[in-house]
Structures are given as C-alpha cells and as structure tokens.
C-alpha cells in the first residue's frame, strides 16, 4: 500500500477515535445525532424567511431603515427591548389589531425577534405577517437575550 495513503488513512482513523473520546468526556457534550430539522432556523429556511444573526441585526438597526418587532409577551417587552422595537406578541395578536394594521401598512422592512434561538414566536409571527401580505420580513434568530449580553442598544430596562 502507498505509504502516503496509509498515513492519510491513519490520520483519519485517529481523528475519529479522538472525536469520539473527546465528546464522551466533554463537559459540553453534544448528541451524536440531533434533529436539527426541528430548529426554528431550519423551519425558517424551509419557509424561505430570511434569517440573520446578531451581527447582521445590529447592521440593520444602525442603518435605521428596518423596524424591529418584538414577538415576546408584553410583560417581557416592558422589562426591556431592542431600541425602537414595537411590541406585537404572537400570543395575543387579536388584542393588538391596531398595531398589526399599522405594521401591515408601513413600507419599512420588518425585523422580527423573540427571546432566544429556542423561542419560535418570532418565526410564527413572521409567517402570520407574510400570510397577511407583508413582504420584506427578516427573522433575527439570536433573540433578545444575546442582544443584551452583547451590550447592543436596548431600552425600557429599569
């Protein structure tokens, strides 16, 4: 056997063994197989909703053209939100018809967000808005928790 091919094979094998051993003993161990298809981002990709991380969401905020929409419950919104964000909780759309109407009429593109990557209210709201005829929708996937950790502009904090 070609010595180079043998060496490459051994490196590939050693790496596999190390990956297994390291993951078994890792404090942040991850499952070997994870159903990423259940993730909100996978759902957004399937629905062709543009998903953006913190870096791009900050760009959009500073550019000033986009309007941020907070899909969390009103109580959470009142305790702190992305600077300039409008509250439209996905769980209580019926009580916020006036806001909803205003958002559907605005020409500004919307950035919808929720608490974190596990919270799918923002995606649900984006899909709802799209069904009502709103285009120019962006989903900020990292959520308010990471926004705050990154010391990005917030308002409403006591």
């Amino acid at each position: 056997m070609n010595p180079l091919a043998k060496q490459i094979g051994l490196i590939l094998l050693a790496s596999a063994a190390l990956a297994v051993a390291a993951n078994l003993g890792h404090p942040r161990r991850i499952p070997w197989v994870q159903n990423w298809g259940r993730q909100m981002e996978a759902h957004a990709a399937k629905e062709k909703i543009e998903a953006v991380p913190l870096y791009r969401a900050l760009d959009l905020l500073f550019a000033g053209n986009h309007l941020f929409i907070d899909a969390r419950p009103a109580a959470e919104y009142l305790q702190g939100r992305i600077k300039g964000a409008v509250s439209l909780p996905f769980g209580s759309l019926a009580e916020n018809l006036e806001t909803l109407e205003r958002l559907l009429e605005t020409q500004r593109p919307l950035v919808v967000y929720c608490r974190n990557r596990e919270c799918d209210d923002a995606l649900m709201l984006a899909l709802e808005l799209r069904d009502m005829g709103k285009s120019n929708l962006v989903l900020y996937v990292d959520g308010f928790e990471l926004w705050e950790q990154a010391a990005a502009p917030v308002e409403g904090r006591p």
């Binding site: 590939l12 190390l18 990956a19 991850i30 499952p31 197989v33 994870q34």
Partner: peptide, 26 residues
C-alpha cells in the same frame, strides 16, 4: 455547520466533531 444547510441534519453533529479533531490532529 448546521447553518450551511448542506448536510442532512442527522449528520451535522458527527461532521462538526470529526472536522474539529481532524484539524487538531493535522
């Protein structure tokens, strides 16, 4: 790795772990 949306979702974690250690061994 998942965010590339190029792999079947079931292979994302295994691929990520393998690439990490392959780079380190190299």
């Amino acid at each position: 790795v998942f965010r590339y949306h190029l792999l079947p979702y079931q292979l994302v974690n295994i691929t990520a772990l393998y690439i990490t250690w392959l780079e380190a061994v190299c």
